[in-house]
Design a protein around this nucleic acid. Structure first.
Length: 553
RNA sequence: AGGGGUAUCGCCAAGUCGGUAAGGCACGGGAUUCUGAAUCCCGCAUGCGUUGGUUCGAGUCCAGCUACCCCUGCCA
């Protein structure tokens, strides 16, 4: 299904070769429910579920909900919807770190009993000061050598609510002089009187990520715990914890880190995305300009396109910035294959075909797809609209479209010749008078005459009005990676252009939301959720590649 | 006395016993075309951060440099 030739897969194969994990491979996707999933998460979802599938194993969905101050059920719902939409299934293996709060507490008690954890009365500031710096070792807390009995007693009272928020923490007892800051007696439990979205007010103390994650992995019998590079420094603690609690080295989970996805022209910081939503720079989490999966879904990206993208960019450990052209290539590839073609005119220029009778309609046959076939009827009448860009009064030699005295083929219809250009008083072109070559009808016996240009069009009498939303990057092309804090000023003011009165052919009349089309010669579009029986609304997913734009400069 | 990572084409990325640099995107050229799309050809690293070394032979091994990323939350 996907190309799984990456270094993580190789590590798995090495483990298997060594006889480890003989019960099968088990991964997990562990989002924190504090925001919507975005394209960067898709990489992780594809990796974790893909690895499991490739190795005939399983992948769990586990919400890492250990910090109730930031998390919410709105996010757990959207995350599940997005993963399913992407095409992955956790079956009945949906878990929450909060499912394990009881067990986690017991493990913490066990750690205390083994003399490997202690309750510290120091304040957050004091702990920070005693931690030392990158180049200087830390100092041991005065509480570090409390007796096991006292620690047990204090920890139980922390749980029971005898102390204020922040008054005490539970810390692992490792090495305050370690060059790895994560090993300088990391905090593993804190007191926070916050309502949890699942456990309610049952708990006053919550485990930290570093403590909860390895144990949650172990409880679920995860074999390979794949995460991003910034957790590399946490791996020694991950191993220390499982070691200290006697988890078997041949079957316990192993953490492997890979580089997160960074995309040009794109904001992938959860915090910044939330800011865009909260300050209403976009219409919501599912605004089609957002790199969230819900935004991309609404924009018209397909699950297959995103999966292929994730497969094509690969998985490695070097920090990289992927060109968004790669993503666009993947949607075009999918939609070229699967989207039906229709004709739509975004910026209409009226054309009167002077040798066609007024009131006459000819229903022409139009293929839906150049290779997959299917067809529909398209009405042809005396008055039509073409794209304004398809006519030029003073055209350069390489302009294959319509010009005064020139000829062009109307797709699926006739060759027309421009006889007269009509202008208003200020010299603006208001309409064209053209004649058709009646012998040139598409598909007809005498249709063989070759004409360089072909243009799309729509009948003035039958065309449907539609709103078309054209999207561009939120960040203009110069923005590579590092965004300043005040990135709001760098937002592209033209990221959304609404065309209120576009015209589409009548065949799409009863189309609901989420249907893809290629507007011939314009790009790929999808009907938006705002579409109603009365009003069609289209989002542009991506434009077609345009070599004329390059010639034109 | 900080520690942990990463460096192969404009952007991703293969390269697993050292044997003479995959592929995709982008880009350029051509063919074809009732979408200036798609498709099809062709081109695109004497070069693998850098300097030395080992070797008949090094992207791959050794040593030293350099650059960039991450780490001093009671966030994940």
């Amino acid at each position: 299904m996907y190309l799984m030739v990456n270094f993580v897969q190789q590590e798995i194969e090495n483990d298997l070769k060594e006889g480890k994990y003989s019960d099968g491979i088990h991964t997990r996707f562990p989002p924190e429910p504090n925001g919507y999933l975005h394209i960067g998460h898709a990489k992780s979802v594809c990796l974790n579920f893909g690895l499991a599938a490739h190795n005939n194993g399983l992948c769990n969905l586990r919400f890492d909900d250990t910090n109730p101050t930031k998390e919410d059920t709105e996010y757990v719902d959207s995350i599940q919807e997005d993963i399913k939409w992407l095409g992955f299934d956790w079956d009945d293996r949906k878990f929450f770190a909060s499912d394990y709060f009881g067990k986690l507490y017991d493990y913490a008690v066990e750690l205390i009993k083994r003399g490997l954890a202690y309750v510290d009365d120091s304040s957050a500031d004091e702990i920070r000061e005693m931690r030392g710096t990158l180049t200087e070792p830390g100092k041991e807390s005065p509480c570090r050598n409390r007796s096991i009995e006292e620690n047990l007693n204090l920890f139980e009272r922390m749980k029971a609510g005898e102390f204020e928020d922040g008054a005490k923490v539970l810390r692992a007892k490792i090495d305050m002089a370690s060059p790895n800051m994560n090993m300088r007696d990391p905090v593993i439990y804190r007191i926070t009187r916050t309502h949890h979205h699942r456990t309610g007010d049952d708990w006053l103390i919550y485990p930290m990520y570093d403590f909860a994650h390895p144990l949650s992995d172990a409880i679920e019998k995860i074999t390979h715990s794949v995460c991003t590079l910034e957790f590399e420094d946490h791996r020694p603690f991950y191993d220390w914890l499982l070691d200290s609690l006697d988890f078997d080295k041949n079957s316990r989970p192993r953490q492997i880190e890979f580089a997160r996805l960074d995309l040009t022209n794109t904001i992938t910081s959860k915090r910044k995305l939330r800011q865009l939503v909260e300050e209403k720079h976009v219409r919501g989490w599912d605004d089609p300009r957002m790199p969230t999966l819900s935004g991309m879904r609404r924009r018209g990206f397909t699950p297959a396109a995103i999966r292929n993208f994730c497969a094509e960019i690969g998985v490695a450990k070097s920090n990289s910035l992927v060109d968004i052209a790669m993503l666009e290539h993947c949607v075009r590839e999918d939609l070229n294959e699967n989207a039906d073609r229709i004709m739509a005119v975004l910026n209409p220029l009226k054309v009167v075909l002077t040798n066609v009778d007024a009131g006459k309609v000819e229903w022409l046959t139009a293929e839906n797809h150049p290779t997959k076939g299917g067809s529909r009827f398209v009405p042809f009448t005396r008055e039509i609209f073409i794209e304004r860009d398809d006519f030029m009064e003073d055209a350069p030699k390489k302009f294959f479209r319509l010009k005064p005295g020139g000829e062009v083929r109307l797709k699926h219809a006739y060759i027309i010749k421009c006889e007269e250009v009509i202008k208003d008083d200020s010299g603006n072109i208001t309409e064209l008078h053209c004649t058709i070559d009646p012998t040139s009808k598409s598909g007809g016996e005498t249709a063989g005459r070759k004409i360089k240009g072909t243009v799309h069009w729509v009948s003035a009498d039958y065309a449907l009005k539609a709103e078309v939303r054209l999207y561009d990057y939120l960040l203009t092309t110069d923005e590579k990676g590092n965004l300043p804090e005040d990135f709001i000023g760098a937002l592209n003011p033209d990221s959304l252009i609404v065309i209120e009165n576009a015209l589409v052919e009548p065949s799409v009349k009863l189309t609901g939301a989420g249907v893809h089309f290629q507007f011939l010669r314009l790009g790929y579009f999808v009907t938006d959720y705002d579409t109603t029986p009365e009003k069609l609304v289209f989002n542009r997913v991506a434009g077609l590649k345009d070599s004329w734009a390059k010639v034109k400069g």
